[in-house]
Nucleic acid binder design. Structure first.
Length: 395
DNA sequence: TCTGGGGTCCTAGGACCC
DNA sequence: TCTGGGGTCCTAGGACCC
């Protein structure tokens, strides 16, 4: 069924991505490491650095379960990328410096760069600690009076201004993509890293986007990519050649149709400046796998601590939830979840612990465990009245 | 060389209600 | 007694993202 194409007003959407964010924040602290391969990751105490005597821990001889969180471009040149196990990274780049992650510091710089952007263009959507979407449609229209007849040139000028401001405020560089949609901007920001501004207009999709790998589309991950490759579909252009019905047949109604739209660069999703969290969770992978019987005491303590941490997070953020979830990962990496919905939303560690304990009873405990997690979903904001136990409006 | 932690969204089946 | 269909909630798993 073919419907008339929707005429949607042209938007100017930017995607801003901080360059090697965590590693770059670390380089502000240790400028002497600039130009060297550096990776951020691992456990707190894995890396003991004493820059006072110039001694940094390197990856050489690393043992443990850590993964690379971020690597500098020098480390990437050696083949070391995010999510890679540190043991593997150590083989590729034994002399790379290993720094432990300092999330408090990254959150601080995250707030700083986002505030700097909002001061120039307020329509900002958070996409995690190091990236955002920005709707520049308003600012582009507002800048019409200032000269440049081409609105894309004005959008580019605003992006450059944002980059300059982010650098002034944080000392960090970022890359920006500007296109008519979030989907394309996400692709565009990667084209000119680090420090670039890339523009893709609708007319450029064939020449600029179609030659790229399908994996570059945000939403096509390793599984879908593999399946597409088996059909001989490697580039976004290959994907665009397939008709929607064929994609729906092989990838499902919703995902297939979405893929077809994505390949043609169609994406009407708005920039969303605020959204409520859906769940809050804590999980931990053990240094060594634990046995449900032999290590029971240790497991029980970890389990209770996780519940306490989730409860503290809920209180700090002002939420209560009624669906309590357990996550368990066995030594063979098989992962399962159980959840239980209780009658009254809670932020109480003991209540969470009890519900999660019920979940634990529904899980086989016949092999060693590598990860335990606790999640609270179905969140609500407990009002003041709800906190006054047993008191009604009419008391 | 086995693979972190914090999230979102989607699917699908079953319960339960109207 | 049988036959429905729709709507919502709960649960489990999985893909994907940063």
């Amino acid at each position: 069924m073919e419907s008339a194409p929707q005429i949607s007003p042209l938007r100017y959407i930017a995607h801003l991505d901080m360059d090697a964010f965590y590693a770059s924040v670390e380089l502000l602290r240790y400028p002497q490491l600039r130009g060297q391969p550096v990776v951020v990751g691992g456990r707190r105490r894995a890396a003991h650095n004493d820059p006072a005597d110039g001694a940094f821990t390197t990856l050489r001889g690393y043992t443990g379960r850590g993964v690379v969180t971020t690597s500098t471009y020098e480390a990437r040149a050696l083949g070391v990328f995010s999510a890679m196990g540190l043991m593997k990274a150590a083989k590729l780049a034994p002399d790379a410096v290993l720094l432990p992650a300092d999330f408090d510091s990254y959150r601080k710089y995250s707030r700083m760069f986002k505030d700097a952007v909002r001061a120039i263009a307020p329509q900002v959507e958070d996409r995690g600690i190091d990236e955002i979407y920005i709707d520049l449609t308003g600012p582009v229209a507002d800048s019409a009076a200032e000269g440049a007849p081409d609105p894309w040139a004005r959008a580019r000028a605003i992006a450059t201004d944002i980059q300059r401001s982010v650098r002034e405020v944080t000392g960090l560089s970022c890359s920006v993509g500007i296109t008519p949609s979030k989907l394309l901007s996400k692709i565009a920001s990667e084209l000119n890293k680090p420090g670039g501004v890339s523009v893709i207009r609708s007319d450029d999709i064939r020449s600029t986007v179609w030659p790229l790998a399908v994996r570059k589309i945000n939403g096509i991950g390793p599984k879908a990519n593999k399946k597409l490759e088996q059909f001989g579909i490697h580039t976004i252009g290959d994907l665009a050649q397939k008709d929607a019905d064929w994609l729906i047949e092989h990838f499902g109604r919703s995902y297939g149709a979405w893929m077809h739209e994505a390949a043609h660069g169609r994406d009407e999703r708005p920039v969303v400046t605020y959204s409520e969290p859906k769940s809050i969770s804590r999980e931990t992978t053990f240094e060594d796998d634990l046995h449900p019987v032999r290590d029971k005491a240790q497991l029980t303590k970890i389990f209770t601590d996780l519940c306490a941490r989730v409860a503290a997070d809920l209180k700090y953020k002002g939420y209560a939830g009624k669906t309590i979830g357990l996550k368990i990962r066995y030594d063979n990496f098989h992962t399962l979840t159980r959840d239980l919905t209780i009658d009254v939303p809670t932020q109480d560690a003991k209540v969470i612990r009890r519900a999660a304990g019920e979940c634990l009873k529904r899980v086989p405990l016949d092999r060693r465990i590598r990860l335990l997690g606790v999640r609270v979903g179905a969140l609500s904001k407990p009002g003041m009245l709800a906190e006054v136990h047993g008191m009604s409006l009419f008391d």
